[in-house]
């Protein structure tokens, strides 16, 4: 198995919508390279034929009935909004 190329903090931070300063990017780059080197050890383990585990419980079909429950009032829903107007959550203009 070939080693994956190392982490590009600038690119990944953009994916994660974190606008890092240059200083932060540099610092994280060093720290995360070290961490990535550490986690790379799992790749030494042969996992051929092993099923992945996504959940800590082995159950399925846990669903709910299609029955209505009370909603929040518009006032409650908007109470924490940083910017609101006319019953809407406001954001800078979205350009399509």
């Amino acid at each position: 198995m070939s080693a994956p190329s190392s982490i590009d903090v600038g690119y990944v931070a953009q994916l994660a919508r974190l606008k890092l300063s240059e200083e932060e990017t540099r610092r994280f780059q060093g720290q995360l390279e070290q961490i990535v080197r550490y986690i790379e050890q799992i790749r030494r383990l042969d996992v051929a034929g092993i099923e992945p585990t996504a959940h800590a419980v082995d159950r399925s079909n846990v669903t709910r009935d299609d029955a209505a429950a009370p909603s929040l009032s518009s006032e409650e829903a908007l109470a924490n909004a940083p910017v609101r107007a006319n019953g809407l959550f406001m954001v800078p203009k979205v350009i399509e």
Binding site: V62, T63, R64, D65, D66, A67, A68, A69, P70, S71, L72, S73, S74, A77, L78, N86, G87, L88, F89
Partner: peptide, 30 residues
């Protein structure tokens, strides 16, 4: 359990789950 309804007044059919509030969890409608 918020109603799936067209045409209600804005933000009157929401709850912690569908607003994505911290800590809320989804439960699937069968």
């Amino acid at each position: 359990g918020c109603e799936n309804e067209f045409g209600a007044a804005p933000n009157t059919r929401t709850c912690p789950v569908c607003l994505g509030l911290p800590g809320a969890l989804p439960t699937p409608n069968h």
